[in-house]
Computed example of a mutant assay.
Amino acid sequence: MKWADVYHAYQVIKAHGIPDENIVVMHYDDIAQHPNNPDKGIVVNRVGGPDVYKGVPKHYIGKEVTPQNFLKVLQGDATLKAQGKKVIESGPNDRVFVYLDDHGADEIVAFPNGDLLHAKDLNQAFKDMNTKKQFNHLVFYLAACEAGSMFAKLLPNDINVYAVSATKPDELGWKANSEWKKYNTWLAVYFAVTWLENSETADLTKESVETQFQYIKERNNFTMDGELHWQHAQEYGDLTIANKAHVSEYMGDKKVQFDAATVAPTGFSLSRDAAINIVRKQIETTDDFAAKQQ
Score class of each variant (00 low, 15 high):
121 D>I: 02
13 I>M: 08
294 Q>S: 13
11 Q>G: 00
146 E>T: 00
76 G>S: 08
124 Q>D: 14
19 P>F: 09
100 L>Y: 04
228 L>T: 15
155 L>K: 08
83 Q>S: 07
4 A>N: 06
9 A>L: 05
170 D>H: 11
223 T>R: 11
211 T>W: 13
143 A>G: 10
203 D>L: 13
37 N>G: 01
146 E>G: 00
273 D>G: 03
113 N>A: 15
151 F>M: 10
17 G>P: 01
261 A>M: 05
71 L>G: 07
103 H>N: 07
41 G>K: 06
186 W>G: 07
103 H>R: 02
255 K>I: 14
17 G>R: 03
154 L>W: 00
35 P>W: 02
167 T>F: 09
244 K>A: 14
139 V>R: 01
207 E>C: 09
130 N>W: 15
156 P>V: 09
264 A>D: 08
55 G>I: 03
66 T>E: 06
113 N>R: 15
194 T>E: 15
272 R>I: 14
104 G>K: 02
145 C>I: 03
224 M>S: 15
112 P>C: 03
251 M>H: 12
121 D>K: 04
65 V>Y: 07
128 D>C: 00
162 Y>W: 15
130 N>I: 04
5 D>I: 00
228 L>H: 11
32 A>C: 06
142 L>V: 05
215 Y>V: 10
96 V>L: 12
211 T>E: 15
12 V>N: 01
290 A>K: 12
96 V>K: 12
131 T>P: 00
230 W>H: 15
158 D>Q: 10
60 Y>S: 04
266 T>R: 01
57 P>M: 05
284 E>W: 09
117 L>F: 10
174 W>Y: 13
31 I>A: 04
57 P>A: 02
231 Q>N: 02
234 Q>R: 08
155 L>E: 07
244 K>W: 06
100 L>K: 04
142 L>D: 01
119 A>S: 11
281 K>F: 10
264 A>G: 05
246 H>R: 15
272 R>P: 05
20 D>L: 08
126 F>M: 06
63 K>R: 11
270 L>Y: 03
170 D>M: 07
222 F>C: 03
44 V>Y: 04
193 V>H: 06
197 E>Y: 03
53 Y>T: 04
64 E>R: 08
227 E>Q: 14
252 G>Y: 10
88 I>A: 02
3 W>D: 15
5 D>M: 05
73 V>A: 07
280 R>Y: 09
262 T>M: 13
249 E>H: 06
105 A>S: 14
